[in-house]
Simulated assay, not measured.
Amino acid sequence: MNQVKYSIIINARPEVVWETITDPRKYEEWTYIFSEGSFFDGGWNQGDSIRFLTINSNNKLEGMISEIAESKYPTYISIRHLGFIMDGVEDTTRKESEHAYENYTLELINEDQTKFTVDMDIEEEYIEMFEDVWPKAMEKVKEISEDAKSKPMKITIRTRISRPIQTVWEGFTKSEHVTKWNHASDDWYCPQAVNNLVEGGGFDYTMASIDGKVSFHFEGKYTKIIPHEQICYVLDDDREIVVNFSIIDGGVAIEETFDAEGTHTLLQQRQGWQAILDNFAKYTEQNL
C-alpha cells in the first residue's frame, strides 16, 4: 500500500469547507470528478458507518464500504475503508491489516483561509488516476466553499421512511402529528402546532423546554406546495427552506435544504435539524 498526499488553500474557514465535504448535495457536486452520480449513505460522526457509492451501467451499486475512524469538527476526518461493493455485491473480506485510510485535515492558516489536505493509502495501480482526479476535486471543493461566502450557506439533510407517501405527507404536515415528533432532543417538546398548508398560508409551532423555562415560536409562510412532492417556505427571519419528497423502493426519501443562521455553528444546525427529521422518521414508522 502506498501513501499519497494533496493540499490546497481555500479562502474560507474550516467550518465552511467541512460543510462542503460532508453536505450530501455539495458532496455530489465535488465528487462527480471521480464518478458521475457519486453519493454517500451514512454519517460523518466518529464510529458511523458510511458507504461511498455510484450506480453502474447495470443499475447496480458500486463503491466503498467504510466507517468514520475519527472525527474532530471542524479540523479532521479519518475514513477507514473496510471493503468494496461491486455490481451490487458487498465484499468485506479484507483483513484488518489491509484496511485503507483516507484522511482530511482542515487547518486554519489565517482569519478566513483554510489549508485542506488529503492523505490516503492507495494501491499502486490507482496512483496515476488519483494524481489526476484528486487535484481537480479539491479545486471543486475550493470553488464551492468560496462561493458560499457570497450567498446564504445552505445545509441539506436527508432521511428515508418505509411508509407510503400519503402516510408520510400527513405525518409531516398534520398538526396532531407534528406535536409528537417536532423536537431535537428529549428535553424539548412541541406543545402546540398550527398549520395552514396552502401557498400563502402559514404555520406556527411552539417549541418549549420540558422544564418550562424556555419557549419560542418556529413560524413561517408557505411559498410553494406540490402535494406529495415539495414544500417550500420562508421563516420569519427570511431564511428559505425546501423539502422534497421522492417515492423510492419500499417508501419515501425526504431531502430538506435550509438557509443557515449566524448564531449557532453549522454543525450544530445540521445536527439539530437532522435530529428532528430523524424523530419524524422514527415516529412515522412506529406509529402511522
Score class of each variant (00 low, 15 high):
Ile247Asp: 08
Ile65Asp: 03
Asn45Tyr: 05
Lys151Val: 13
Val243Cys: 09
Glu256His: 01
Asn45Met: 10
Glu255Arg: 07
Phe34Glu: 04
Leu267Phe: 08
Ser38Val: 02
Asp119Cys: 09
Lys151Asp: 06
Gly262Pro: 00
Ala69His: 00
Gln269Pro: 05
Gly200Ala: 10
Leu288Phe: 12
Gly201Arg: 14
Thr223Gln: 13
Thr284His: 04
Ala100His: 07
Glu15Arg: 02
Ser162Trp: 02
Thr263Val: 10
Gly272Phe: 10
Phe203Ile: 12
Thr22Gln: 06
Ile247Lys: 15
Gly37Asp: 07
Phe84Arg: 13
Asp91Arg: 12
Ile247Ser: 14
Tyr283Ser: 02
Asn287Arg: 13
Ser215Asp: 12
Arg239His: 12
Ser209His: 05
Lys95Asn: 15
Ile210Ser: 11
Ser209Asn: 05
Gly220Asp: 01
Asp41Trp: 05
Lys282Arg: 12
Phe245Asp: 04
Phe52Pro: 01
Tyr205Leu: 11
Lys142Asp: 08
Phe258Trp: 03
Gly43Asn: 01
Phe40Asn: 05
Lys174Tyr: 14
Trp273Asn: 09
Phe203Val: 11
Cys232His: 14
Asp41Leu: 11
Phe52Arg: 00
Trp273Arg: 09
Glu70Ile: 08
Gly272Met: 04
Glu131Gln: 15
Phe203Met: 11
Ser66Pro: 02
Thr257His: 11
Gln269Val: 10
Gln271Asp: 13
Gly220Asn: 05
Gln46Asp: 09
Val16Ile: 15
Gly220Arg: 03
Phe130Pro: 03
Thr159Trp: 13
Gln274Arg: 06
Gly171Asp: 02
Asn58Glu: 14
Leu277Trp: 04
Gly47Arg: 01
Leu197Phe: 13
Met129Asn: 09
Asn182His: 14
Thr75Asp: 09
Asn59Trp: 13
Ile8Ala: 06
Trp273Pro: 00
Asp119Phe: 11
Arg239Trp: 08
Ile254Trp: 10
Leu197Asp: 10
Ser35Arg: 11
Val133Gln: 00
Asp132Ala: 10
Ile241Asn: 03
Leu266Val: 12
Ala208Asn: 04
Ser97Lys: 15
Met207Glu: 06
Asn279Thr: 07
Val252Ile: 13
Lys149Phe: 12
Ala12Cys: 12
Thr93Trp: 03
Glu261Phe: 08
Cys190Trp: 07
Glu285Pro: 01
Ile254Thr: 03
Lys115Asn: 14
Val194Thr: 13
Thr20Trp: 04
Cys232Thr: 04
Gln230Asp: 04
Gln113Ser: 15
Glu111Ser: 15
Asp119Pro: 05
Gly202Glu: 12
Leu53Trp: 12
Gly251Phe: 02
Asn56Cys: 07
His264Met: 15
Glu128Pro: 00
Glu124Lys: 15
Lys136Ser: 06
Arg158Leu: 08
Asp87Tyr: 10
Asp278Met: 12
Gln269His: 08
Ile21Asp: 00
Gln271Gly: 01
Glu107Val: 06
Lys151Ile: 05
Ala208Ile: 07
Ile8Lys: 03
Ile248Lys: 09
Glu285Ala: 08
Asn11Trp: 06
Gln274Met: 07
Val4His: 06
Met120His: 03
Trp44Ala: 02
Tyr222Glu: 11
Lys213Cys: 03
Asp259Gln: 06
Glu98Thr: 13
Lys224Asn: 15
Ile241Gly: 02
Met153Asn: 11
His99Asp: 08
Phe258Ser: 01
Val243Gln: 09
Met207Ser: 11
Val234Gly: 02
Gln271Ser: 09
Pro227Asp: 08
Gly63Met: 00
Tyr27Gln: 07
Asp259Phe: 01
